[in-house]
Amino acid sequence: MTSYRRMIQILTQVLLFCGVLGVTVLLLFPAIVAFGTSFKPMGEIFTQTPTIFPHEPTLAAYKKIFCMPEFPRFLLNSFIISGLTALIVIIAALLAAYTLTFTRFPGKKFIRQMILMTYMFPAVTLVIPLYFFAHRLDLLDSYQILIFADLSFALPIAVWLMAGYFEKFPLELVKAARVDGCNPLQIIRHIIIPVMKPGITAAGIFSFILAWSEYLFSLTLTLTDESRTISAGMHYCLMGNYRTDYGLLTAASTIIVIPVVILFALLQKFIVGGLTEGSLK
């Protein structure tokens, strides 16, 4: 009887595993195909009978990308803009989330809701005046305006996420530190950050990824390759001169996506964990 039940259990496990595997492969099929194609020579890309993986793998497409003058520039721009955005977001959101969680003051609920509400602002609505401001202040085609624009979506979500994590933090600890005469900055530095590091990191990574992927602002607020991020860069290259160069497309996609995926995979535990409970275990 027990062995029969055990058999059923194992069988369910195996079926479940195969199900998850199947769903994952199916969902990732486009990415798998793109990854495989990035290593194909021209002849294998432009064929009526495409395969998933190349017969004769080559790095030709990658070499071509790094010989293009624009592409490394786009990568650097994206890296600087996303990094600075994440940095500003972490600092501002840390202070705001602390205040919104651990202090009492009139209008707190209103501010919390306002920050939540800003999440519904459409980028299309914001980009119109941002374009004219940038034009007037001579900031079109600069890092500053793109970082500024990216803050519009990265900061509210980070504040919201961090405030959520902080709610799991025992208020008594903060109160005890206050009684001991710690100011908020000391409390944040010595109590909140050590305990809530995964949640804070997750919020920072989240902002980085959002800024890294940003498309509309970069498309609109840049004029030349000088400050263009990868999104707008790829838009102009791959919908323009290199329109049908699928080797270039898939190789560029791989280069852009791989670092983010690795970063994310390493921190994924903290992001899911950070969303649930502030790691206080």
Partner: peptide, 25 residues
């Protein structure tokens, strides 16, 4: 954990990559 990470990949991909990739598909 691996499956969770893998299933999150489409979300970390920039929209331009997703868009151009599907155009090609």
């Amino acid at each position: 954990g691996l499956f969770r990470s893998l299933l999150l990949i489409p979300w970390v991909m920039p929209h331009i990559v997703t868009g151009l990739m599907f155009r090609w598909l």
